[in-house]
Write a protein that binds this DNA or RNA. Structure first.
Length: 408
RNA sequence: GGAGAGGUCGCAUAGUGGCCUAGUGCGAUGGUUUUGAAAACCAUUAAGAGCGCAAGUUCUUCGGGAGUUCGAAUCUCCCCCUCUCCGCCA
């Protein structure tokens, strides 16, 4: 959500920035509504003043008269407020100035590559063939009981996930992150407030009508909302959380896309980082979160590239976003495994999260980033595969799993 | 799931239709006093919004929403949350 005053003063900029993200905005309508609203608001206020005065004087006749007038104008006011709000919620967060303009993901910017694409003197297999042969991934039985896009992680497959999670927590706890296991069901009303259900977002969510709850698509959703309607102390910032949870996505609209293996599933696990910082300190924090993500991938010894999203690929709340893409030998290309975004004060306005610094009060900046998800397992299996189909376990993970090789 | 009790300013509590412009205590902040501190005393003690150059002024908010009323913290209805007991259960 953007500041209404800012919109009033910089309407052209708001339009231009939205356009860069590929979103058309009817700013005229917003300004007209805003203008109407303020006129009406003033009128309603003075009518209320009259009502209050009549009540104090116990002037019943006068009170009755004012009540009728007030009712009508209050209804109008509420209607306009609601409409204006609807439009305001549709405005995207403007991209930061350092973000390059681009229409879609083909125009994203590769910032750097770390490590060389893994070379094999045999034809590398994909993660699913490897996983099935080693009996660590089972999608056939999963589909029997849950349908397409579900999987069992089994044996060392399950242990690999635990190991990745522990590796991430070990690093982030050292960095002072607060560990968190969040709820994965959120009230529909709160999810709407978060803004994840707009623009078709609800199509990608599992909604439990009977209980008015929604399954989270990422624990970012519950972690970001943890301080809803709170004023934080500036002393405690930056405040950093690391949460672990299962994530649920309907993947509507991705039929036939990435159907093989565990790359795109309805359910997966993720270790998520969320930072709250003071206004204007998000750039520094963003680089910090990125550096942590790189450190984790580097410690696994997986070749990757850092990609900076162009304006057209940013999405609504992000002002800047980096993806880390790991080298996937079977596809002969890099694929997204983790990412990090700054939402500046876009989310904190919606959620009403502020901080107090002396006499000053301001909205916090909120950032998020993936430490690990299930996806890096794909990169590990494929990059560490041997000719006989066995997998060497990355050295940093060996202590968690208690062996060096996965073989049958 | 059943029965009951609650939710008021940072915290604790008072408030059962107009004297609430929400009282009191604690805490916090500033000041006076003091060599310094404590104590004492004095003052301040929320957020959001509108109008106004400003001083200021008005409105909204007593868990949330809807209603009754000239007038609601107070009455009615719905919802949320917390606590106690029972039942069930990792």
């Amino acid at each position: 959500m953007l500041d209404l005053k800012f919109i009033r003063e910089n309407p052209d900029l708001v339009v231009k920035k939205a356009k860069e993200k590929g979103i058309e905005v009817n700013i005229e309508h917003i300004l007209v509504l805003d203008n109407k609203l303020r006129g009406l608001d003033t009128m309603v206020q003075s009518l209320r003043e009259e009502r209050n005065r009549a009540a104090k004087e116990k002037n019943i006749e006068k009170g009755k008269e004012v009540k009728v007038k007030l009712e009508k104008h209050e209804n109008d006011l509420n209607a306009i407020k609601e409409e204006l709000n609807k439009y305001l919620l549709q405005l995207p967060n403007p991209a930061k100035d350092d973000v390059k303009f681009g229409k879609n993901d083909t125009e994203n910017e590769v910032l750097r590559r770390v490590g060389e694409p893994t070379k094999f003197n045999f034809a590398p297999k994909d993660h699913l063939s490897l996983g099935e042969k080693l009996d660590i991934i089972d999608v056939v039985r999963a589909s029997k009981i849950s349908g397409a896009r579900f999987y069992f992680l089994k044996n060392e497959g399950a242990l690999l996930e635990f190991a990745l999670r522990q590796l991430a927590f070990d690093l982030l706890l050292k960095e002072g992150f607060i560990p968190l296991i969040p709820p994965v069901l959120i009230k529909t009303e709160v999810m709407k407030g978060l803004g994840y259900m707009e623009n078709g977002g609800d199509e990608d969510m599992y909604i439990l009508d009977k209980d008015d709850l929604v399954l989270v698509g990422t624990s970012e959703q519950s972690i970001v909302a943890i301080h809803k309607d709170e004023v934080l102390n500036a002393k405690d910032l930056p405040k950093r959380y690391v949460g672990f949870s299962t994530c649920f996505r309907r993947e509507a609209g991705s039929y036939g896309k990435d159907t093989r293996g565990i790359l795109r599933a309805h359910q997966f696990d993720k270790v998520e980082m969320v930072s709250y910082t003071k206004q204007g300190e998000d750039d520094k924090e963003h680089e910090y979160l990125l550096s942590l993500e790189e450190k984790l991938l580097q410690s696994l010894g997986i070749p990757y590239q850092v990609v900076k999203m162009c304006t057209g690929d940013l999405g609504y709340p992000a002002a800047r976003k980096y993806d880390l893409e790991a080298w996937i030998p079977s596809e002969n290309k890099y694929r997204e495994v983790t990412s990090t975004s700054t939402t500046t004060d876009f989310q904190s306005r919606r959620l009403n999260i502020k901080y107090q610094d002396g006499n000053e009060k301001n909205y916090v900046n909120i950032l998020n980033g993936t430490a690990f998800s299930t996806r890096p397992i794909i990169a590990i299996l494929e990059n560490y595969q041997q000719e006989d189909g066995s997998i060497i376990i990355p050295e940093v993970l060996q202590k968690y799993i208690g062996k060096e090789v996965i073989k049958r």
